[in-house]
Design a protein around this nucleic acid. Sequence first.
DNA 1: GTTGTGTGTTGGAACGGTCCAACGGCCCGC
DNA 2: GCGGGCCGTTGGACCGTTCCAACACACAAC
Lengths: 369, 369
Amino acid sequence: MERSNGRPDEQADARTGAAAGRPPTIRGVAERAGVSKSLVSLVLQGSPRVSDTKRQAVLHAIEELGYRPNAAARSLVARRTHTVGVLLNDMRNPWFVEVLDGLNSLLQAHGLRMLMADGRLDRRAGQDFARTFQELRVDGLVVVGTLPDTDGLAEVAARLPTVIAGNHEPRLPHADLVANDDERGARLATEHLIGLGHRRIAHIAGQGLVGELRRRGFEAAMHAHGLAESAVVTSGDGTEEGGYRAAVRLLTPPSAPARTGARPPAAQRPTAVFAFNDISGVGALSAAQELGLRIPADLSLVGYDNTYLARIRHLWLNSVNNASHEVGRRAARCLLDRMERPDTPAGQQLVAPELEIRGSTAAPRPDCP
Amino acid sequence: MERSNGRPDEQADARTGAAAGRPPTIRGVAERAGVSKSLVSLVLQGSPRVSDTKRQAVLHAIEELGYRPNAAARSLVARRTHTVGVLLNDMRNPWFVEVLDGLNSLLQAHGLRMLMADGRLDRRAGQDFARTFQELRVDGLVVVGTLPDTDGLAEVAARLPTVIAGNHEPRLPHADLVANDDERGARLATEHLIGLGHRRIAHIAGQGLVGELRRRGFEAAMHAHGLAESAVVTSGDGTEEGGYRAAVRLLTPPSAPARTGARPPAAQRPTAVFAFNDISGVGALSAAQELGLRIPADLSLVGYDNTYLARIRHLWLNSVNNASHEVGRRAARCLLDRMERPDTPAGQQLVAPELEIRGSTAAPRPDCP
DNA sequence: GTTGTGTGTTGGAACGGTCCAACGGCCCGC
DNA sequence: GCGGGCCGTTGGACCGTTCCAACACACAAC
């Protein structure tokens, strides 16, 4: 027995893990199997240079004691935790889950687990998360979506392999960035509406850089088809309520207030709406319904993100698929690469979005050209 | 300097944390501040018996080096990780997020972080998670929702403080259970419909024990009002598609198949539907619409869980609030208690649900009594 | 008989913290 | 002047693992 000192009886117990309440340690397994702890370690590592008899003895002892290696002790010496920190902004947002799914599929295959934290759930700022993740010595960091406070992130990214997924900011010198091409997606949606024959098309804009990119894509497509004059942009906030209010503004001309209850004059109102995201699109849907406009006969509608909201039969919204799953997969790929070679310069990848066609768009009615 | 052995120059560097690439350690901080590592430890712990001058020196050194304590090393000796494992079944389910929110609010206040894992995201069985969480030596375990494989859980729960949240099974000898009172919630919904004057009421049932409890509550309420004869139960699967199909079955009498397109005879079809959850309720909503029935004039509808689906203007579903946030809070409370006194016998708590009234129910039309 | 070549096994030094016993000063009381 | 108590500080043992140098032993080559 190594390290013999006074009172061998009780001390030995405490050391082998036979002490009450404490989970068994590698020493306890070693003693039970009649080998040294080094040999147990070799068995755990699946080393080929262990005799069959001893290997069996060790495995048997592990089984008997219900031994589980201590991850903390292991990572302390290995200086790797096999854990990736995932910083979420809002778990309530459905496409986040898709990103996580994509992330997880690759990370798990490489023996990494995800430690998730929700920036909105916890009231602590983003910097504090960075702190927690640093203390845990995670092997990498994935930031999903917008972050309220990105101040501390640059500093962390310089030390820790970091990837931003599903957002276009912040651009950091040491962090890769993977997102869907929002501008292109917005062009896709707008061109679909133009292709159906719509001319007066409105956009309910969103916030942040993503909101700006989608608006830019909308305007670019309108401009490219000589429709810059008939493009209308009104601001929403990405919520159902915001989409509803924006749509009421759009569909109720100032000359004829909504309270008259009359359908707005066809010649003035937009015949199609491209919403920042699905949820604000659903708000617009409600507004249209209340104003007596049918979808898609009287008004065409396109959303963004292709969440399951859009897939609900009763809503059945055309929507731009933001390829969240693929974004997650690619983000994982970036992270794995960066973990292997930490000093590669930061890159960015844009995934091509696709328009999912359902039942919320149609050609404009002939009487409103 | 402690532990002096050969080659003092290079070795010293490696030990103080000044070695290239490695994050600074407590020794590095100590050396920089000109104190012992024990004193640094005391400062980190916020001990009052440290002189102000030395405390300032240490804090300054920490700041300069960007030192972060190593959680693995700390938890190794403290035998506490301050981490709670959270086993989710399906992150796509919106009410889970509410539970997490409730959980987090209390756990965070007690200095515990949550390590989340999604049982559906990962293909591994529940038992493997238990294994991972055991290796990480989490201080407690919360199982949210249904678990595909609960075999290993009993064994884990015997060693680790465990709470089941938002589900009624499995009943384990060492694990507390917190859920909403599904039977009561179902009674609430059914009695609301009966109170409006409905007699022929249908229930779209769900799966698992929760599905059974809600069905039981429905049947109990119908029975209590002498309506057992006119209670109809049809099975769904908790999905929109399942709810849609069930509603089509319910609303299309066998004598007059749906393909005639005619509205089903009022005398035969149910005038109200209580759905297992919001999402299958939304499916039923779509079916009713396709069959030309208006909500709530021709058909009343109540869902369960009060997710944000029910809150969407365009759906505006009456729904039973399952008090997920409160379930989360109470689960956290249980876990904290159990962490303090691990040997208390397992208990269970049912939170009282409440009916949220919106626009999807009304009195039945006078011509269909 | 010595020297090598594996092969299987082992002790002990890390890893980065916490905690405890012990220590040197200093002040106080007698 | 001396013992005792308090205060701020320190070295070292320890937590449970990995990894490396060293070992014992069998067996082949010279």
